[in-house]
Amino acid sequence: MSEEKTHIVPYKTQVIVLFVLLILTGITVAVTRLEFGALNTLIAMLVAGIKATIVLAWYMHLKYEKRLLPMLVAGVVILFLLVLFVTFFDYSYR
C-alpha cells in the first residue's frame, strides 16, 4: 500500500491553469500577425516554453513531486538543447 498521502490538486487550480494556457495560446496566435522578423519564432518558442512549463508543473504534478523528477526532466531538456546546439554547430561550419 502507498504509505504517504498524495497531494490533491483542487478543481479551481486546474481551471485557472487552463485559462492561463488559453491566454498564452491567444498571445502566440496574435503575435503571428505582427512583424518582428526573426524575433517572431523566438517569441513563439518562448511562449510555448512557458506553456510547457505550466503543463509540466501543474497538470503533470511536478510542482508537488519530490525533487528527483523535476531534476530528471530538467536533465532531458538540457540534453535536448545540447543536441540542438551541437547539430547547429556542425551544420554552420560545413
Binding site: I8, V9, Y11, Q14, L18, T25, Y59
Partner: peptide, 13 residues
C-alpha cells in the same frame, strides 16, 4: 487539447 488536459487532470482529483 488544452481543455482535455484539464479534464484528464480533474478526473484524478
Amino acid at each position: 487539447l488544452l481543455i482535455s488536459s484539464m479534464t484528464a487532470a480533474m478526473s484524478i482529483t
